[in-house]
Amino acid sequence: MKEKKLCIIVPAYNEAESIEKVINNIITNYSCYDYVIVNDGSTDNTADICRNKGYNIIDLPVNLGLTGAFQTGLKWALKQEYEYVIQLDGDGQHDPRYIEGMLELADSENLDIVIGSRFVGEKKPFSLRMFGSKIIDLIIRIKSGKRLSDPTSGMRLFNRKVVKVMSHDINMGPEPDTVAYLIKCGAKVKEYKVEMSDRETGESYLNLSNSIKYMWKMCFSILIFQNFRERKKI
């Protein structure tokens, strides 16, 4: 039996144009890792493409949102007894060649979370998006004393202990506030330098109104709600 080390979770919502490329890359170049696509009730033919190609897919019949979709992947990985999971977006932004390094870092230093960061030891370019990222970085630093140069990066590796906590809680989306909360719970977090390409296809989820909502929720969640939340043992 293959050792069940790492599972790549690929949440996909309407990624018909890019999913094939992303998964083919994993299958041909990184076949040492298992992967699972969680199709979040896409309205295009993402699910059909995956089935025709025989990809490993969990097909949600309705749209749950990123939190619900990612949690589905976590639950599956937990059942399959994987030691680590990593989130890899279905739009081709995240390059799987960094997985090995992230995994090694987690293994050697016994870390709970490794975040693939674009800005380790680098200055952030100035844009509205980076401004938001800076604010989140700042409030995480205020609350937990930990510096995260790229808190909004979606490329995160979690170990089994963290997955267990994340897989069923109501307020545990794969977002910076969850990372901040987990740090408070005692999770050991480090960043690993990665490069990310821009979205190749599809539309970014972050339009202006969504961005404001997102920032609002993150600030509220990290600054205020974190004080109330029960600290789970990790």
């Binding site: 809680d169 307020n171 609002w216 939340r229």
Partner: peptide, 18 residues
């Protein structure tokens, strides 16, 4: 606050009430 503590309330939903 108590509902959040027990993970029975979504943060998005509680913002309005606060």
């Amino acid at each position: 606050q108590r509902k959040i503590r027990k993970s029975k309330f979504k943060i998005e939903d509680s913002i309005f009430w606060i």
